[in-house]
């Protein structure tokens, strides 16, 4: 090889250490792809329309003003978020790696000077940004409706709702991404994502109720089992964050408030963060150790 080529190789060795730059490049592409994809636009529109609908319905009663108007709306939004956001995030995550593998684009991507860790993180960051943008758009519309109908929005509480929702979306996205990594086909990954969503949204509530009756669970056991579910942790975190009492959740809520006091919000946020960190780390490790594409 000529001297020129040797110099070029040495330069390459130096310059290809940029972990962050590769993640950023991959994230930018993922972000652009997500924003231009049909399902993403559909979800964004659906979320925005539903938030407007919930805001209108919640404020249709009499005498809702300012923050009290917002509180009523946020209660309605909470249920909407718990249904829509996990579904959106799980499907977004589940389709990504498995989809690329199925289309044959993953091989091409991996043949570039990028590590598998960078690919997973780049995809995660890009999708996370796209999801958060989509959610913020829905919330902005909702905030405008509340401000118009109720005369004001509790900015701090509304910001907290947005932050907690984004955190929930990031956790569910990490779970979806993990499913995408372990599935060979995109439809299998999406199917698993729907199953996880179903379990998180419906079965855990019903299962908890059934378990409480059948096994005569103590209140602390019910609480422990409840917060394992990121959706329940999210719900409690929002309620606590709005300075509302968890008593609205019955004896379990009352137990949580009395037992953990000011540590409760941290505890609930930790659950959501763990639901992000553990699946994402597991995904990175599994993808890096995968013997084939």
């Amino acid at each position: 090889m000529s001297m020129l080529s040797s110099v070029s190789i040495k330069t390459n060795r130096r310059s290809y250490s940029g972990f962050g730059a590769s993640v950023a490049a991959l994230a930018r592409r993922e972000f652009r792809d997500a924003l231009s994809s049909r399902w993403f636009i559909l979800f964004t529109i659906a979320f925005a329309v539903l938030t407007i609908g919930v805001s209108f319905v919640s404020l249709s009663g009499v005498g809702s003003h300012g923050f009290s108007g917002f509180s009523k709306t946020s209660a309605g939004l909470l249920n909407l978020i718990m249904l829509i956001v996990p579904l959106m995030a799980l499907i977004a995550g589940a389709g990504t790696i498995a989809g690329e593998r199925e289309r044959g684009t993953l091989v091409y991507l991996l043949s570039q000077p990028v590590s598998r860790t960078e690919v997973v993180l780049g995809k995660y960051v890009g999708l996370a940004c796209a999801l958060c943008c989509s959610l913020c758009l829905g919330f902005a519309v909702s905030a405008a409706v509340i401000a118009w109908r109720a005369g004001g929005v509790g900015v701090a509480a509304f910001s907290l709702l947005i932050a907690t929702t984004c955190a929930l979306a990031l956790a569910m996205l990490a779970v979806g991404l993990l499913l995408s990594i372990i599935s060979r086909r995109a439809n299998v990954a999406v199917g698993l994502g729907l199953f996880v969503w179903l379990v998180a949204v419906f079965a855990s509530d019903l299962g908890l109720m059934a378990g409480t009756v059948l096994f005569r669970l103590r209140v602390q056991d019910v609480f422990a089992l409840a917060i394992v579910n990121p959706l329940q942790a999210f719900k409690m975190a929002v309620i606590v964050g709005m300075n509302a009492s968890l008593d609205v959740l019955g004896p379990v809520g009352a137990y949580a408030t009395q037992s953990f006091g000011s540590a409760l919000p941290w505890m609930l946020w930790s659950v959501i963060v763990l639901w992000t960190v553990i699946p994402l780390s597991l995904g990175v490790v599994l993808f890096a150790r995968k013997g084939s594409i």
Binding site: Y16, T105, V107, P113, V114
Partner: peptide, 28 residues
């Protein structure tokens, strides 16, 4: 060029240009 592709794949691939059977990228 002395770089093990299994251990330092990213650096090794920086020295390789790959052309697949068919360009696999988003058609849009």
């Amino acid at each position: 060029n002395g770089v093990d592709v299994s251990r330092r794949g990213k650096i090794a691939r920086s020295m390789i240009g790959y052309v697949p059977q068919e360009l696999a990228f988003h058609d849009d």
